[in-house]
Design a protein around this nucleic acid. Structure first.
Lengths: 98, 98
DNA sequence: TTGCTAGTTCGATGGATATCGAATTAACAA
DNA sequence: TTGTTAATTCGATATCCATCGAACTAGCAA
């Protein structure tokens, strides 16, 4: 294991995470999930944030791809929640500032 | 003071900070400043990161505008260092993960 | 003044991305 | 089968931004 390679990989992950959070609607999704401490669906978030469901789906995917959230599927419905591990590793203490 | 307004303002700041950090070269600048624990000049960073001085200047400005760094000027030379306060307020614990 | 050094700004370019409606897929229900 | 609901994908568009070299500004020194 080369330290520089793993650091480069970690940096790539950091940049991806920051990009994901550098968007007002995605940040609001994170806050809602953190404060409500429960899973939420695409439709539910779309209604609360007043954005189209396609846009919400797009943001959900972005958050999931960088590991900030995870998804639990029940029938046609997908429930989104925070992936605490990722926040702990890359942004410890951040959620508490929201 | 309206809580929602100040939260909106804080969110705007958060998004700006994440945007600033969502760029590989800027993240590297932050890491170098954190690890070396000293001020660095535009030229010095440009040489170390192998990017043109105009690009470095552009990134320096971006970091300064969101309050992640501060600048001390001596004659023509500007010395850059981290603004610890901002990290403490918006990203507590982040620097230590680098 | 004449250079030299450190940074900034400008203009142009190429690439990324946030957004929406429409079409599509998938799962369930009647 | 037909219809309904939840979410994804597709196209298209508009905007943002990282990058560079060149031109410029400002401070210092012969």
């Amino acid at each position: 294991m080369n330290i520089e390679l793993t650091q480069a990989a970690a940096d790539q992950q950091r940049v991806a995470i920051f990009k994901a959070l550098a968007e007002p609607n995605r940040l609001r999704i994170i806050r809602v999930l953190y404060h409500e401490q429960r899973e939420m669906t695409c439709s539910e978030v779309g209604a609360q944030l007043q954005i189209s469901k396609s846009t919400v789906s797009y943001h959900f995917k972005a958050l999931r791809l960088v590991g900030l959230t995870n998804t639990r599927q029940v029938a046609q419905t997908k429930y989104l929640s925070l992936q605490q591990d990722t926040f702990d590793r890359y942004l410890p203490g951040f959620l508490a500032t929201l």
